[in-house]
Every structure is written in C-alpha cells, then in structure tokens.
C-alpha cells in the first residue's frame, strides 16, 4: 500500500526558473518524482503546480480550496519566489499575500525553493521596489510557525530539491544550518571543493575571461558561497559555472544579488 504525500507548489514573485531546474532532475527523473514512488511505498501527489497542471482558473483553484480543508496539516507547501506586498501581486483575484498566508497556515511543512523564496533574492534586490520578503520573513510577520527548509540557489540544483524531499519522506526534516539550509548540500564553501583551487593556492589568477587560472580576480564569490556545485556539477554533470570559465556569482547566499558586482573582486572577511 503506497502512502500519498500531498504537495502544493505555489509560485510567488518568481521567474519559474526553480520549476524548470527541477524538471532537469536526472536520477530520479522528473517522471519518477511526479508519477512513480519517489522512495519505495511513498508517492508525491502534486495537487497544485501552475506551470504543469492541466487545470486552469477556478478548476485549478478549487484544488487549493479543497486541500486546505481535506488535507489540512498534511500537505507539504513548496514556495518558489519571494512574497511581494499585496498591491503588486494577485492570484485568483486575491492578493498573493493572503493566498500564501492561508496555504501556509494549513501546511505540514514548507520548502522555500530558490533564493527568492529562501532569502528574497532578485525581487528583494536593492531598492526592493515591491517590498518583497522571503518566506521566513513573511511567516514571522504573520506569526505562522511551521517547519521551513530553505533550498536556495538561483536556480537550485534539482538534486538539492529531490534529495531534500526524499529525506523528508524517509527520515523527516534533514539537518539544517543556521540559515535553515540542508547541511548535506550547503555544508561547504564552493572554494573548498573548487577544481580551480590549486590555481588559487599557487597564485595563478585569470586576468580576463577564457584565461586559465582561478576566477578570484574576475569576481568569484566561491570563497563565500555555500553549495556543492564543484563536486555535483550541473545539468546531468556536464558543467558548472567555474568550470565554464565564469566566476561563481554567489547565487545561493542571502546577499545575492547585492553583495558586490558579480564580476568585481570582493575582499572577503575570511581572507588573510
């Protein structure tokens, strides 16, 4: 007998990039995630997900209305995107704020997927024209207390998402760091595992794009960014940012995109 895990996926102020990234999941494939048992005996029942669900309009919204009652306290709420102030966003002829508030109140746990949801990200970038908030900030404001797991990244790697969900199904909430990120994926700095680290240690720095060498002087945020990109690689393992001759732009951190220019050298506090 398989157990159903109802899931509602809500899109706030997002670009849908997190959803598209999750579609790129290699093993499990996205078909495995949606239609098969993600782990034996347990099936994700994706009730509401605007980018892929068949239903539109009221037919789609009825699913949410129904879930808030019949699946109260049972469903996992995935939020992609930041939460802007009410006048800037509406869904189903309601403000986005009220929509999220109701969904959050009745959820069992919340996954903040992507940097916008976890920390505010791009919409919250200075001067934050829509007064966007991260999900944690929003919940605090509304005094809603629910377990929240942050899976930042612009976008997050599909493994970070599927791995976290599998962890929830098998063992419950994974070990989190002080920013509510699973330690499994965000425990180390890019810099610690970077394949160009030997260049850094030898002091060989790329001076312009396409040069050999460490990306540090081209603005690399690897010494400050927590993520396992260097050992995991992206898009079925074919490449990742630094391997492609780009500095890490620090997209997994709360300061993204405001820390400093992405292509300008930054002086790190943890630097000697």
């Amino acid at each position: 007998m398989k157990k159903e895990f109802p899931v509602i996926w809500f899109q706030g102020a997002s670009c849908s990039g997190c959803a598209v990234s999750v579609l790129n999941s290699l093993s499990p494939t996205i078909k495995n995630v949606l239609l098969d048992e993600l782990v034996p005996g347990k099936h994700i029942n994706l009730l509401f997900m605007p980018t892929i669900m068949t239903a539109s309009g009221s037919v789609a919204l009825d699913v949410v209305v129904d879930a808030k009652i019949s699946k109260k306290g049972e469903y996992i709420l995935i939020i992609e995107g930041a939460i802007p102030e009410s006048e800037f966003a509406e869904v189903g002829e309601k403000t986005m704020e009220s929509f999220v508030e109701e969904l959050a109140k009745n959820a069992s746990a919340i996954i903040s997927l992507g940097t916008c949801s976890a920390f505010g990200g791009i919409p919250k970038g200075v001067p934050n024209p829509t007064k966007s908030k991260s999900v944690e900030e929003f919940l605090k404001l509304k005094n809603i207390k629910k377990p929240v797991i942050n899976i930042p990244g612009c976008p997050p790697h599909p493994d970070w998402f599927t791995g976290t969900v599998a962890n929830l199904l098998l063992f419950g909430v994974p070990q989190l760091d002080e920013l509510s990120r699973p330690k499994l994926f965000y425990g180390k700095l890019i810099h610690e595992n970077c394949e160009r680290r030997p260049y850094f240690d030898k002091g060989k720095f790329a001076k312009k794009f396409s040069d050999e060498g460490c990306m540090y002087e081209l603005g690399c945020k690897g010494p400050y960014t927590h993520a396992d990109c260097p050992i995991r690689s992206w898009n079925s393992g074919v490449n990742w940012c630094v391997q492609n001759g780009s500095p890490c732009i620090g997209c997994c951190e709360p300061e993204f995109p405001d820390l400093e220019s992405m292509y300008k050298k930054t002086k790190w506090s943890n630097e000697k």
Binding site: F209, S210, W234, N235, N244, G245, Y263
Partner: peptide, 24 residues
C-alpha cells in the same frame, strides 16, 4: 539544457554569455 550547459555552464541562468563574447 545539457547541450546548453556544455557552453553556458549551467541552465537555467547560464554564465557563458557575457559582454565581449563568451567565457570559455
């Protein structure tokens, strides 16, 4: 997307295309 990432680094949101050409 894998094809794209071969030259773009990753996708969504590639790092390959920049002013002046591409990175690698």
């Amino acid at each position: 997307h894998e094809m794209l990432a071969l030259f773009g680094g990753k996708m969504p949101h590639n790092v390959g295309i920049i002013a002046g050409g591409v990175t690698e």
